[in-house]
Write a protein that binds this DNA or RNA. Structure first.
Lengths: 191, 191
DNA sequence: CTGCGAGTATACCGACCGTTATGGTTACCT
DNA sequence: AGGTAACCATAACGGTCGGTATACTCGCAG
């Protein structure tokens, strides 16, 4: 049986811990960041971390869930703040990704976490998979709203371009990856 | 100044070490695999590892370079063994990727290494970037041979689908990712 | 006044980290 | 015969790992 732990109570110190862990885990990787370092950056102690998050795995899952929430809100804000309609709304997601990746070259935090933890933490893997499925459904939903044919399959194909752009921009060091993604998306939307 | 170390002399023990490290690093991640574990799996001692590879970073770079060579040979063998011509040769690369990913769900070893090491090892990052550039040039070269317009830009766009398929298949847990990639590639090749 | 939850401070645990050292055993090359 | 390269075995180095224990202070609600 899979135990689903209750979410940690977000006391003030817990907030500082999660903020520090989010920055450190994303920037330096999860395995190479120890609990002592997180405690130091959060201005607290390991005792408080374990009181709030139970284990390193618990803190990692909280980090991934918070990051997913931030990222999804970022996309939804972009969509809500754009006058685009129809197929153009699909390009708004690419713009949101571009803005999200503007700072930093560390790539997708979820892919990075999967790279380190997929064989060691089922909970972390579950959060990563959920975020990737969210991307697929986001594009599929926009394709359906635009009245395009086979929106589910098209949404998955658009998600490939989305993920590929992150990889080629960061790990691949290809600075024009986002522009390439816009071209690829447009090519896939003209029938 | 950047020191380029000479490649390790591949004595019999060095071969076993590199084989063991390749399997362990890819399966469990690089940071979480220690030198003791590599020595144990290779049936040798840490002394011999350091005699042959100098440091953990040296062993990691050797792992990535060997993996890139294996992967590129895999693709070239697929291309050489296929009767396809023109744009169909681009799909052969997707078939080669499908076969390469048939076993395992650990995704792209280079992206995984980048996730763990990009802020800590310039040498490892250089090997990762070289492999991603190789993919872009591979597709661009096939696009040029097929007589397609703007082959460089098109090659980069095809590389996005390629990388995205790996991510969505493994981290995303989307089993139809390779079929989606074939559809996306075909959509991008009809003008 | 009391009890309690939250947080701080410090020390500790066994295990493992990357790295180096010492010493000895083969086997091949001159 | 002597040298050298490759390898094995054992141990140790200082440091960090995730996690636990003890003891303390503070603010607040009953």
């Amino acid at each position: 049986m899979t135990i689903t732990q209750e979410p940690p109570r977000m006391t003030p110190a817990a907030h500082r811990i999660l903020d520090a862990a989010s920055e450190l885990y994303y920037d330096r990787g999860i395995t190479s960041v120890g609990m002592d370092l997180v405690a130091e950056h959060a201005g607290t102690t390991k005792k408080t971390i374990y009181d709030r998050f139970g284990s390193k795995d618990g803190l990692v899952v909280a980090y991934l869930e918070a990051r997913a929430q931030r990222w999804q809100k970022h996309v939804e804000d972009h969509l809500a703040g754009s006058p685009a309609t129809g197929v153009e709304r699909i390009l708004v997601v690419v713009d949101a990704l571009d803005a999200w990746l503007a700072r930093g070259t560390r790539g997708c935090g979820f892919v990075n976490a999967y790279a380190e933890l997929s064989t060691q933490s089922a909970d972390a893997t579950r959060v990563v998979r959920a975020e990737k499925e969210w991307i697929r459904r986001l594009y599929a939903g926009l394709a359906a709203e635009a009245g395009l044919a086979a929106p589910e399959a098209l949404g998955r194909q658009l998600a490939l371009v989305h993920e590929g752009a992150i990889v080629q921009l960061t790990a691949g060091g290809s600075p024009e990856a986002l522009d390439d993604a816009r071209l690829a998306v447009r090519a896939m939307l003209v029938p």
